[in-house]
C-alpha cells in the first residue's frame, strides 16, 4: 500500500515541476544524510585525521631537529674556521720570528767572521814584520862578519907582503868596493 502511494507520488512529481520538491522523498534523505555524514565523520576522525596530524607533526619535529643540528654544525664549522685562522696566524708569526732570528744570526756570524779574519790578518802582518826585522838583523850581522873577514884578510895580506903605499891604497879601495858591493846588494 505504501509503495502504491509512493508510485502515485512519483507520478505526481513527474507531471509537476522539479523532482527535488517531492515531499515523499524527504524523510529518508534527511535521515540518511545525517547518518552518512556521521559515519564519514567517525571514519575520518578515527582513521584519517590523527594519521595526517601525526605525519605533519613528525615532519615539523624532524625539520626543527634538522634545523637545530644544522645550526650546531654551522657553529662548529665557524669555530674550527677561527681555530684554523688562529693557527695559521700563529704559524705565520712563528715563521717571521724564525726568519728575523736567522737574519740576526747571519749578521752576527758575518761580523764575527770579518773580525776573525781581521785579527788573523793583523797577526800575519805582525809575524811578517817580525820576520822582516829578524832578516834585517841577520843581514846586518852578516855584513859585519864580512867586514871583519875582509879586514882580517887585508891585514893578513899586509902582514905577509911588504906593503907599498900605492898597493895599500889600492887594496883598501878594493876592500871598500867589496863592502859597497855587498852593502848595495843588501839594500
Amino acid at each position: 500500500m505504501i509503495s502504491v502511494a509512493h508510485a502515485a507520488a512519483e507520478e505526481h512529481a513527474k507531471s509537476a515541476g522539479m523532482p527535488q520538491f517531492e515531499p515523499s522523498m524527504f524523510e529518508h534523505q534527511i535521515v540518511w544524510s545525517v547518518i552518512s555524514f556521521l559515519i564519514l565523520l567517525h571514519l575520518l576522525k578515527k582513521h584519517v585525521l590523527p594519521a595526517i596530524n601525526d605525519l605533519l607533526d613528525a615532519r615539523a619535529k624532524k625539520i626543527e631537529e634538522d634545523l637545530d643540528s644544522a645550526k650546531l654544525a654551522r657553529k662548529q664549522a665557524e669555530k674550527s674556521q677561527t681555530d684554523l685562522n688562529n693557527q695559521l696566524a700563529s704559524a705565520r708569526q712563528m715563521a717571521s720570528e724564525t726568519m728575523d732570528q736567522a737574519r740576526v744570526d747571519a749578521a752576527r756570524h758575518r761580523e764575527q767572521a770579518v773580525e776573525e779574519l781581521n785579527a788573523e790578518l793583523a797577526k800575519k802582518k805582525n809575524a811578517a814584520l817580525l820576520e822582516i826585522e829578524a832578516a834585517k838583523k841577520k843581514a846586518l850581522a852578516e855584513v859585519q862578519a864580512t867586514v871583519v873577514d875582509l879586514t882580517m884578510l887585508a891585514t893578513e895580506k899586509l902582514i905577509a907582503k911588504s906593503v907599498t903605499k900605492s898597493s895599500a891604497s889600492s887594496m883598501v879601495e878594493e876592500a871598500l868596493k867589496e863592502i859597497k858591493g855587498s852593502d848595495a846588494s843588501l839594500h
Partner: peptide, 8 residues
C-alpha cells in the same frame, strides 16, 4: 537535492 543541502 534541496532536502539534503537543507538538512545540512
Amino acid at each position: 537535492q534541496i532536502i539534503v543541502t537543507g538538512t545540512f
